[in-house]
Structures are given as structure tokens and as C-alpha cells.
Design a protein around this nucleic acid. Structure first.
Lengths: 224, 224
DNA sequence: TGGGTTATAGTCCCTTTGGGAGTATTGTGT
DNA sequence: ACACAATACTCCCAAAGGGACTATAACCCA
């Protein structure tokens, strides 16, 4: 992570830049990093809390952030602040054009995929699990959106936050819609056996998916 | 991973059960595991190829699979087959009700989130990156669906595959729709500055999201 | 028939990351 | 006054990522 790249500059990974970005957004302490993680970042860049205490130390050691050791009563506290060199490094990173692809990991979908080896109840439960998570996330999103609508969007970040919000919102709406659809598909099933009728329906599902895409011009493909 | 749990049985993790499930689906060799990973599993359970050679060894050592050492010419090959105890273990796992939540990881969205610190081109590029990935995935999905429609869906798995297919399809359709919407939102932007007008628009975006959900009854929320 | 390329079949090991356990002190509410 | 939540860390083992490396087999094309 702190090896040099060809330029003789530090080769940080995206997680380090994520921390640098949070410092640029005004996070002051490692604990504040953990709060940002809990509030927002975990939905698209989940990282272990313990690492959020390590990462800024590296940035400070490279001169990309300044660390100030204070104390509150008898307890130590380290305050971090992004440095001018850190801001440049962040900008340079944002200017690069190689971006790791989106990754999705879902144990629930894994269980659906293996649904044939369990019971119909197991299969329904896996789908139900996705639905519950989506609904919980949508409630969370609703509370954040309402907070912003009442108190005003963050003046420096609202325009950007809205883009990210819409992504996560759409994702969870999609999850819930898929789960609802899936439960409906399974509504007549008493088992998970592969019957001829179910194979026909499977083919129909594939055809519908392809047809929807052909029939919807890109200009109409937008949230809402 | 191979420690005992309370029952005196092996406490495998979900990745080990994923391998067990692939063996149950008929995968014979570690190489076939890597092909399943490339074809499908990577979209919702991405794992390093090197681990796909290690994992079945563990299963074999626990009696959940049988390993047969053959040779093709002068090259060794290990064939794996799930054992009756392995099938039971898989069923027991599918019967459990604790499921890890879905995790999403997107460097592109991270860059959007930090968009304020880069240029408008950087921001557009990050969104464009999501769009390109979604389109590539949809092409991939299209080719698989067409293959199934021409050659018939897999007779033992088609009914289950269709559920998983629809999930991944909807996910990528959502990604593309979001990216299209995002590019449109940015269409008038010459920079990433937080203007009053953009803050108003941000609030409107939040309101629209909340309103859409309130106005769409669950029964109408389904793919398509 | 030869030679290049892709597919098949692995091993090894260094780094990074996850994530739990442990330890305190400070602030808040009742 | 006491409990509980929030703040503020450190340490470390196990798991996972993932690149480097080595082969042979199978296939295709000239």
C-alpha cells in the first residue's frame, strides 16, 4: 500500500483514497471515519472499523494528512487534517481513469442458486431475507432524506449526495421489487422440483427480460 | 473454517458451502469450479480462483466429498464428487436462517461521492464507467439467455436459474438506468461547484424518490 | 506436420483485510 | 449515583485476495 509507483510517488489503494476523501470532507478523527462508514460508506465501500484507525496513520506518515495529538480529559485523541499535498493526491486519483468494477456479494442469492437442494421454505426464506434487507435500507434512506428535506441538504455536498442517494435508493427498490416478484413466482410451488411447466415458465421469464430491454428505448430508461 | 461447532460437526463458512453446492450441481474438477465462477457465480459470490483449488480438499478431508486422483496422459487430475454426508450438510446449511446481508462495493460510486474534489469530467467518467459495466453485463446476460432459449433451459436447474437471472438482469438494468439518469442530471454542469440551484435540485431529487415509493403500491412493484 | 494458442490442472506464498477481543475514559440520562 | 451509550483507541489471528510460476493436453491454422 505504501510502495512507490513509477513516479516515485506513493501508490495508495482505493481504500486509502477513500479515507483521504473523508478527511477532505471534514472528518476530524478516526471515530468520525467510523461514523461516516456506518452512515453512508458501508453501502458501497464497506471496510472494517479497525482499519479506519490504521489508514489515517499511513496518510500522515506520507505527508498527505497532518495528525495532531490532543487530549480530552485523561484520554488521548488524534485529530487528522488533510494537507495540501493530500488534496493534490486526491485530485490526481480522481483524475485517473482505471476504476475497479462493481462487486456484489449476496449469500441470499447463493442460497437461491442452490435452491434445488433445499426445501421450498428455504428458498422462500432466502428471498424474504432480501426483501427484509431492502425494506430496512429503504427506511434508512427515507430517514436520511427526510432529515435533509427538513434541515436542508448539506450546503457543500447536497448536489453530489443526491446522485449517490439515488443510486442506493434505486438499488434497494430493485431488490424489493425482485423479491416481491420472486415470491409471486413461487406462489403456487409446493416443492422445488423441476417440472416441465416450470421449465416453460423459466424460458418465458428469460424472453420477457430480453423483450423488455428491446422495447424500452434508452431515453425512457431512468429512475421512476 | 474447519473448527467444530456446538454439534461436534464441522463449522464451514458460506464459501465452503458454495463449493459443496457446485459439486452437488455436478462440477467434477477444480477447473470446472473456476468456470462456474467465471460464468455465473462471480456476479454474486466472487472468490479467488486459487481458493477454488483449496476448498474442495477441505471438503474431501471432512468426508463431505470424495476425491479421486486420475491422470490424463502425464498430467494429474483430481475428480471430486459430493458424498451423501456432503448432501446432508448442504441441506442442513440451506435450512439455517441466518443469512449474511448483501454487500455492494463500487469504486465508481466512491468517486462520485468524492466528485466535489475532482473535475466534472472525472465525475462524468465515473458514471460512464458504471454504464459501460452494466451494458457489458447485459450483453453477457443476453448471450446466456439466448443460449438457453435456443438449446433449452437446463432441465434440472432452469426454474431456479431463471430467478437468479432475473435478479442480475434487474440489477444491471438498474445500473444502466441510473447512469443514464445521472448523465442527464449533469448535462448542464460545467463544473462541480455547489450552487444554490443545484441544492434545490438535490432536494427535489430526494422528494421524487420518496414520492415514487409512496405512490407505487407493493403489488405493482415488480420487474418490468 | 509443425508451431502457436488456448484450455486444462494445478502449487506456492506474500500481502491485505476482516473482524473479534480487549481496555479505557467521557458524556448523558434518570 | 449509577447505568448505559458514545468516544477513542490497540492488538492480533485467521481468512482471503491474488499474482507468479509450472506443466501438459487439445485444438487450429498454415
Amino acid at each position: 500500500m505504501s510502495r512507490l509507483n513509477e513516479d516515485g510517488r506513493e501508490a495508495l489503494n482505493s481504500s486509502a483514497y477513500a479515507i483521504l476523501g473523508l478527511l477532505a470532507m471534514g472528518a476530524q478523527s478516526a471515530y468520525e471515519l467510523t461514523r461516516q462508514m456506518e452512515r453512508t460508506l458501508r453501502f458501497f465501500w464497506p471496510r472494517a472499523a479497525s482499519k479506519l484507525y490504521e489508514a489515517p496513520k499511513l496518510l500522515a506518515s506520507l505527508g498527505l494528512a497532518r495528525a495532531t495529538h490532543e487530549s480530552v480529559g485523561r484520554r488521548p485523541r488524534t485529530r487528522y487534517q488533510i494537507s495540501p499535498r493530500g488534496e493534490e493526491a486526491l485530485q490526481r486519483w480522481l483524475g485517473t481513469r482505471t476504476i475497479a468494477p462493481i462487486e456484489l456479494e449476496s449469500e441470499a442469492l447463493l442460497r437461491v442458486w442452490f435452491g434445488r437442494f433445499g426445501t421450498i421454505e428455504d428458498l422462500r426464506n432466502a428471498i424474504q431475507n432480501v426483501q427484509a434487507q431492502a425494506q430496512a435500507n429503504l427506511r434508512w434512506g427515507t430517514s436520511i432524506a427526510q432529515e435533509y428535506l427538513v434541515e436542508g441538504v448539506p450546503p457543500e455536498r447536497g448536489h453530489i449526495s443526491a446522485l449517490t442517494f439515488r443510486f442506493l435508493w434505486d438499488f434497494n427498490v430493485m431488490l424489493e421489487a425482485w423479491a416481491t416478484w420472486g415470491q409471486r413466482e413461487l406462489s403456487g410451488w409446493g416443492d422445488v422440483e423441476p417440472t416441465a411447466e416450470r421449465m416453460d415458465r423459466a424460458a418465458a421469464i428469460l424472453r420477457e427480460a430480453l423483450a423488455e430491454r428491446l422495447s424500452t428505448p434508452p431515453s425512457e430508461r431512468s429512475p421512476g
